[in-house]
Design a binder for these strands. Structure first.
Lengths: 219, 219
DNA sequence: GATTTCTTGTGAATTTTTTCACAAACACTT
DNA sequence: AAGTGTTTGTGAAAAAATTCACAAGAAATC
């Protein structure tokens, strides 16, 4: 995460096991490929794509080799085809419903963040202990009370949640999410969540990111 | 880093070279230690602290060994002393001024996010191409136009910036920041920034984090 | 104060990740 | 159709990160 802050073991029942770091990079590659496509570029070499993604060409090729061989020697990769193949592998072809729990400052911004839907995710609802609280922004999604979560999750087959509640209640809410069948949590609360090992947690800790920066910029 | 999305090489002129992942974990350890302190716990074993941080005890000990030996065999670590030593190493003892560029949905939330100051960072000002635009939230920091950046950065000795502008202009703004002497950028724009190698970029890409989750939760 | 118990610190082994190096495959040119 | 130039795919090597295993050191107990 960065090599970031994620420690959960990488597991995948079917299909070959692909390292987590590779999966991260595949996501980056798709975004670079999308930009190439927008610019009307039909073919790209591993060298050019790697440069755009900020990695070495060999690494790109190794990453792709985990799940297939898509290139043409002497020519490179077909931009459209490679995009498609990576999307298939990542499973981003289908749209994933996501809920958000904790509609405070950050949660509110995330709910109204337009960067998700373009990428195949949709925050279909938000939950908060105080759903009716006055908020300084109008959002299109409904805000429900926490008690409405189990029913909603079951009915909409929600598998992923964004957790933006205060640290003090994060574990408790995470437990509830897991109970309801949520399998993936994007956690913004600055604590390490304890979850069953088949549940995946990705942590985003902004303070740690800043701290990390500050360390490396002071000689 | 999510082990996340960071590829810049780890470099540090003075002091021993400590791997980036270790630095990330040191940040986690300090947060766990802070909680222990709040609970009045004076001593902790590597086993207990590692469990709280979600890592293996040996890893914790190896991480600490990079910059010293602080424990007492048979007893463990003094919570207060270890906190102090890690803070010293990370350089979080002193407060770092940070600016934010791009006061859109996300930027606005980040500016009003109270999670930073507690951790030693303060967003002292925000910049936007349209500083006067109507925003649905009042913030305590001033918002200036981009043209005011160079002078402000120089005057306040700003070394770090949070970049939350649209992808299309992110590179351009990053160039300007680098020109002004910013050495660390926390980048929320979903593109790979090209910067001189002595400038450090940490990427936070929420869509990729979600994508990553979704991959690992589908069998 | 001797003995037992606990826990750190660390060299060595292991595992994972990245990089190298080059043969194989294809495109392009003539 | 042969020859030249690219670029992929991959086994092997190197580097990095993690885990093991255990000696050394300190506390607690008797």
């Amino acid at each position: 995460m960065p090599p970031s802050l994620n420690f959960a073991p990488v597991k995948k029942s079917s299909r070959p096991i692909i390292p987590r770091k590779t999966i991260y990079r595949l996501s980056i590659y798709t975004r670079c490929l999308a930009r190439l496509r927008e610019n009307g570029i039909g073919t790209v070499s591993s060298e050019a794509l790697a440069k755009a993604a900020g990695v070495k060409p060999t690494q790109l090729r190794k990453d792709l080799a985990y799940f297939g061989t898509f290139g043409t020697r002497g020519l490179g990769y077909d931009v459209l085809e490679l995009s498609q193949k990576i999307s298939d592998e990542l499973g981003t072809s289908r749209l994933q419903p996501v809920i958000l729990v904790g509609v405070g400052h950050l949660g509110l911004a995330l709910v109204s963040y337009r960067g998700f839907e373009k990428e195949g995710f949709e925050i279909i609802a938000a939950f908060d202990t105080d759903p009716g609280r006055k908020r300084d922004k109008k959002i299109s999604q409904p805000i429900f009370g926490i008690e409405a979560m189990p029913k909603f999750i079951a009915e909409h087959n929600v598998k992923m949640a964004i957790l933006s509640v205060p640290a003090a209640v994060a574990q408790e809410v995470a437990n509830k999410l897991v109970e309801c069948g949520v399998m993936g949590i994007l956690n913004f609360a600055p604590i390490v969540l304890a979850v069953p090992e088949d549940v995946m947690v990705n942590n985003v800790n902004l303070a740690i990111e800043l701290e990390n920066l500050s360390y490396f910029i002071q000689g």
